[in-house]
Design a binder for these strands. Structure first.
Lengths: 256, 256
DNA sequence: AAAAGGCGCTTGTTCAAACAAGTTCACGAA
DNA sequence: TTCGTGAACTTGTTTGAACAAGCGCCTTTT
């Protein structure tokens, strides 16, 4: 059998291995429920030490791709693919990762003073200037989500010189060297207001799935705050947890 | 300063360390935004090698509790506590972990044949017998969630001999030795139907946050399937991701 | 035939060492 | 004063080794 070749990059070995292993699973080379080669075999196959192989396997394990315990080789778990950072942060990236065509129609872009609630969420003073964008997003032409984005001026100002209907804000910002490092996503449900209803073509009061996102840079400053409302029959969120692994997600009560 | 003492158990060292570090953070000994002691100091403090300390830190890192990169000690992240398995799987455990009093009123328990859709989700044949439970859950007396649980007979039958209003089904089942090993949670939004409305005391059509859960045992068999509907102003879900760490959660499109 | 034991396999845990790569800070040159 | 250089320190990567602990299977014993 011809051995697939690891891509030659300058990334660390354990990272290349985890990517390679993940590919073997998505391509069906290692099938769901099947058991992996032993660590010793993987070491020999790639000429690395056991620690490195274990580091790569640990990555897949915490993504939920691998499971199983001591004494026998790990099993390929129920294949709930995990989501890389970019594809969780960017609608455009997400669509592309699904092989679908993202669409966007910008309904508004404005600079205005932040309202009290928004300012509080973003850690600004009420009235501080923010750039706000309202966009309707679609998948393969089907309207799917209404996005209300608020950006701090440093990040938002360059957007006035960007064709918002042409693609990804996330992509544009990263290409400008902005370091979007961390996202915090809060998920709940809301009833469609008049704006949601007219944009998404539904009735007022329809239940929508809402994802509120705060995007931070490396130093913990808020760069962006968004309120994305999905048609719940077109998209939802899935998470897996096991007895061994704490879920990185929590359920939060909102009682005063 | 008196050094806190690690609990003496038979758990592996890296696990004891990660628990100990997590405590230091929740007690405020290590504050949010603050920087940890260097790995070398932690090694010396606990008399272990660097690999072991790094393993403990990696645990907190993947939970999102720690962040920060090469060259400087890790920072205590925005303290979004991660959620252990039990507290994500069980409403009762969750309430207790918040210092709140869980309440439950059982509206129905029945054994009946599974409908086609439910059977499909659980991997059963339509008409296969399942035990179904309908319970209203509350936090500190405030109705918060309506739970529709369906159990395979092996798991559901013991529930007929259990006082469902007295506490946790999850706790009862684990005490019976059932191995609930893995959960898969799907989150979306629904409009309240007549049953939701009357139980939760809201109007029909109100937007509810829905968590559908499939619980598996070690061998991948479905043990339970539930449909929990939260009042969205009382509870929601939060997840964090960073450029380094893939989120264990994914956003899924539902287009045919 | 069934239970018990042991052997070889696997993964889990821990240590020690070395080098690579990024950060911080003080010192010296322009 | 400012800028850059470099030393000291930090975390990241990788190796090699050893032992503990769990699993499967075969053999032996009851």
């Amino acid at each position: 059998m011809l051995k697939d070749v690891l891509p030659i990059t300058d990334e660390p070995m354990h990272q290349r291995l985890s990517i390679f292993f993940r590919e073997r699973i998505t391509t069906g080379d290692w099938k769901e429920g099947q058991s992996l080669p032993s660590e010793a075999e993987l070491c020999a196959e790639h000429g690395v030490s056991r620690g490195t192989v274990r580091q790569a396997l640990a990555t897949l394990r915490r993504e939920g791709t691998l499971m199983g315990g001591q004494g026998k080789p790990p099993l390929v778990a129920h294949a709930v693919p995990s989501q890389p950072f970019a594809s969780f942060m960017s609608f455009t990236e997400w669509a592309h990762s699904l092989g679908k065509e993202p669409g966007q129609k910008t309904l508004e872009i404005a600079r205005r003073g932040a309202e009290a609630e928004l300012a509080g969420r973003m850690g600004l003073q009420p009235g501080d200037s923010v750039v706000q964008i309202l966009r309707l997003r679609s998948l393969d032409g089907v309207p799917t989500m209404l996005e209300r984005g608020s950006f701090v001026p440093e990040v938002g100002n360059p957007l006035f010189n960007f064709d918002l209907d042409s693609g990804s804000i996330f992509g544009h910002l990263t290409s400008l060297g902005m370091d979007l490092a961390r996202g915090r996503h809060t998920i709940d449900a809301v009833s469609a207001d008049a704006l949601d209803a007219s944009a998404l073509g539904i009735e007022i009061g329809t239940a929508l799935l809402r994802e509120q996102r705060l995007t931070y840079d490396q130093d913990g400053r808020v760069l962006e705050c968004s309120d994305d409302r999905y048609l719940p029959h077109l998209a939802n969120f899935v998470i897996e947890n096991t007895r061994q692994t704490r879920a990185a997600m929590i359920r939060i009560p909102l009682v005063a």
